[in-house]
């Protein structure tokens, strides 16, 4: 009986230790991803500055901004639902990151517990949370921003989904690890991006990706010169800081999903490299393009990328 008790406590202790290690791993992973996301945003600012023939801020500027914003003393809030919306807005993308294969970087494998549909629907929790907060904020600019953001979402989801479904049709699976396994890691000829007819789907989804990340020409939702930064109009201090963190996490999730589906992202490290490459391409376009009107952007998104991606999907299905 004595031994049994000892064994029992030992196993309890081991379990507790295991849970602790797991929690630490999760926290480290999320911290790492958000840090990389913020680093991407630093690259963005530096890159844009160089394109505009400026020196630009240091590459770690987003970290400074986040620290400053989170340390603000009295950010304005309207109601406790405002705070709840912001927490939901940051929590959603963080939960989403846990379902991406990037989590192998710290030896987790939660990404095997969900699939593409879950990721697609988990990806909207964040934007929805911030949209709720903007709505509670009660500024008409915020409402315009939300209206535009959701309109854009309707616009880019169609080509993006068509592109992703083409891969699902090709590989016959919704599981991310299987999609990875169907491609080679470093040989571009083995990527879905460069295979006929999937290249069409990839191009369609890639154009839509610009909208997913709300980079120009699809950044209508946060148009500072038109609608006073739209959704963010009532966000100050820590709320804005959390929004920056959410943006960083979402960047990693969106680009990671695209890298896994089209660029053969298999392990965490090569996926991160591909994320950087994708991001550089995206911000190159962002730096030189203007902004569409919301209706123009919607029309464009439902026309060209959709036609290209649909063609890719149909050719894949009927091949």
């Amino acid at each position: 009986m004595n031994t049994a008790t000892v064994v029992g406590t030992a196993s309890m202790g081991a379990k507790f230790l295991g849970a602790l290690v797991l929690t630490l791993k999760v926290l480290i992973y999320l911290f790492l991803m958000v840090m990389i996301g913020l680093f991407l945003m630093g690259i963005y600012r530096k890159f844009t500055a160089r394109v505009q023939y400026r020196v630009g801020p240091p590459i770690w500027q987003p970290y400074i901004d986040v620290i400053k914003l989170l340390s603000k003393k009295d950010a304005a809030t309207k109601n406790w639902v405002f705070d709840l919306g912001v927490i939901m807005g940051l929590g959603g993308p963080l939960a989403l990151l846990l379902f991406l294969p990037l989590d192998t970087i710290v030896g987790l494998n939660f990404h095997t517990k969900g699939d593409l549909i879950l990721i697609l629907y988990l990806a909207v929790v964040g934007p929805l949370g911030f949209a709720l907060a903007a709505s509670v904020g009660a500024s008409p600019w915020g409402a315009i921003g939300v209206g535009r953001a959701l309109s854009m979402m309707l616009g880019y989801e169609l080509p993006f989904i068509l592109g992703l479904l083409a891969v699902v049709a090709k590989d016959g699976t919704l599981l991310l690890q299987k999609v990875s396994a169907a491609q080679s890691m470093w040989n571009p000829a083995g990527w879905h991006y460069f295979q006929w007819p999937l290249i069409l789907a990839a191009i369609g989804a890639h154009i839509a990706l610009q909208g997913v990340m709300s980079e120009k020409p699809f950044d209508q939702a946060i148009a500072p010169h038109e609608i006073a930064s739209g959704i963010m109009v009532e966000f100050g201090g820590k709320y804005l800081g959390m929004m920056l963190l959410m943006k960083a996490a979402s960047l990693m999730a969106e680009l990671g999903l695209f890298a896994v589906f089209f660029l053969g992202g298999t392990t965490a490290w090569d996926t991160i490299v591909k994320i950087f490459a994708l991001f550089i391409i995206a911000i190159s376009f962002d730096a030189v393009l203007g902004r569409f009107r919301p209706d123009q952007a919607f029309t464009v998104l439902w026309k060209w990328p959709t036609i290209i991606a649909l063609l890719g999907l149909l050719l894949t299905v009927f091949a």
């Binding site: 009295d74 939901m88 929590g91 846990l98």
Partner: peptide, 30 residues
Amino acid sequence: LFTVGILVALLVYTTSGGSRKVNLDDFYNS
């Protein structure tokens, strides 16, 4: 995992700076 995400967000929320409640008609209006 959803709870974990929300809890981490809550952690960021509680450890960062304060906030004050403003009235409903106090919003940015140029």
